[in-house]
Design a protein around this nucleic acid. Structure first.
Lengths: 187, 187
DNA sequence: TCAGAATAGTGATCCATGTCACAGGTGCAT
DNA sequence: ATGCACCTGTGACATGGATCACTATTCTGA
């Protein structure tokens, strides 16, 4: 399990054993059942999560009680309500398991400690953040420029396994269309 | 002008004179006329830009020749096609001036050099990247959950000056609605 | 193993927004 | 000053997608 984390980090920066020891010291492991909430809207967000196995959704519930999925987090992904995390305020979104999920947890203090004491970890987080930013911007572009049908096809192309792992209802909430409309896109 | 850059950076991290000297050495200044393209889709993106004065739009032109505005960049903002920048590939988006604009330019090598030699600059970029990521995610949320009208009102509330500075056509391209629809939102 | 809850498909209807067309206003350039 | 390009508003119409309602199927937990 720690090998997984290590190789994940070492895809971007090298760490010696001593450094990785310190990294590991700052993470904790947690396991959640299917459907369990890791945190809910309104709660303080104390951790960022690295998904070892399982599947998460980051969701927002609007005033009409409709769920919107900002993102799915599969193996090797990082997830949290990062605004709430970095500002240590209450979550506006919730993080919930779509499957039984194991995560590594990193508190903000630990994050800052690692950044300060292991420059390569700061480099790692910078790289991750840049990639996350780029990914979000592409999602914005896809929401602005493509139809629901195209977005559905793009999603299947990029993450074909998702179709097996999540319900159509969830996919629709991610794509920004109603369940019924999604159902008609391929019939 | 350099004072502007310095105080922008020092909102996040302290720099001594020597460090700022090095920072400044890696930036170059450029000026562009209204409507001029800083780069166009298909070109290599060699720089990231810090806006000293003026106003930029980052835009994507789809296959039907419709323009979509991913973001505006006002004073104190950073902008580029960051995917193309970090991977040193060709731009999928274009960056164009809505007003006469002065920018500081930072090449990828300079960016990396600064990150490596001035840890506080790496901290600065990490902070900026995190904020950028959070901002994009909120834009995604707003595209998923709110109507064009609400988005228009949110935009005016956050950046009231934009209404004076850009045409309705531009605003519509940013909000993801047609010019006509936007026109009807407040009549 | 069985009942209730999710999940999925589909018909009917309605509405928001896109598209096309036109006209008046403003500002810039020759 | 004149003319042209751009910006804006608005009417008419088309349409994609939301909403509501119902049914069939699959999952799941006591």
């Amino acid at each position: 399990m720690q090998e997984k984390l290590r190789s994940h980090i070492e895809k971007i920066v090298r760490l010696n054993d001593e450094e990785f020891e310190l990294v590991l010291f700052h993470f904790s492991i947690a396991e959640f059942r299917k459907n369990q909430f890791i945190f809910k809207e309104g709660e303080k967000v104390k951790q960022a999560y690295y998904v070892v196995s399982g599947l998460l959704k980051l969701l927002y519930t609007d005033s009409s009680a409709n769920q919107h999925i900002i993102s799915f987090a599969m193996e090797d992904w990082w997830e949290s309500d990062f605004y709430a995390y970095f500002t240590q305020t209450k979550a506006t979104m919730s993080l919930q398991c779509l499957e039984k999920t194991t995560v590594y947890c990193l508190s903000l203090e630990s994050y800052q400690h690692l950044c300060t004491h292991i420059p390569r970890m700061e480099r790692f987080f910078l790289q991750k953040s840049n990639l996350g930013f780029i990914g979000s911007q592409q999602r914005i572009l896809s929401l602005l420029t493509t139809s629901a049908k195209e977005r559905y096809e793009q999603l299947l192309e990029r993450y074909p396994s998702l179709l097996q792992r999540v319900s159509k209802t969830q996919l629709a909430a991610y794509l920004g269309v109603s369940r019924e409309t999604l159902s008609r896109l391929y019939s």
